[in-house]
Simulated assay, not measured.
Amino acid sequence: MNVFGIGLPEMAVIGAVALLVFGPKRLPELGRTLGKTLKGFQAASKEFEREINKAMAEPELKGDEPEVLPAEASSAPSQVPPNEEG
Rank of each mutant, 00 (worst) to 15 (best):
N2Y: 01
N2L: 04
F4D: 07
I6V: 10
I6K: 02
I6D: 04
G7L: 02
L8S: 03
P9K: 04
P9M: 05
E10S: 04
M11R: 01
M11D: 02
A12S: 10
A12C: 12
V13F: 03
I14P: 01
G15Y: 08
A16R: 05
A18P: 00
L20Y: 07
V21H: 05
V21Y: 07
F22Q: 02
F22L: 12
G23W: 04
G23A: 13
P24H: 09
R26T: 15
R26E: 14
R26F: 06
L27K: 00
L27N: 01
P28V: 10
P28L: 11
P28G: 11
P28R: 05
L30F: 03
R32A: 13
R32P: 01
T33G: 12
L34D: 14
G35E: 14
K36A: 15
T37K: 10
K39V: 13
K39G: 14
K39C: 12
G40I: 08
G40W: 05
G40H: 09
G40K: 10
Q42W: 11
Q42R: 15
Q42F: 10
A43K: 14
S45K: 14
K46P: 01
K46C: 05
E49P: 03
R50M: 13
R50I: 11
E51W: 05
I52S: 06
I52P: 02
I52R: 08
I52N: 09
N53R: 15
A55G: 10
A55V: 08
M56P: 01
A57M: 11
E58T: 13
K62H: 08
G63M: 08
E65N: 02
E65M: 06
E65F: 09
V68D: 02
L69D: 07
L69C: 02
L69G: 03
P70D: 04
P70M: 04
P70V: 08
A71E: 09
A73G: 02
S74T: 08
S75T: 12
S75V: 05
S75K: 13
A76Y: 09
P77D: 12
P77I: 00
P77V: 04
S78E: 06
S78N: 12
Q79C: 06
P81F: 02
P81W: 05
N83S: 00
N83P: 10
E84L: 10
E85A: 07
E85Q: 10
E85N: 08
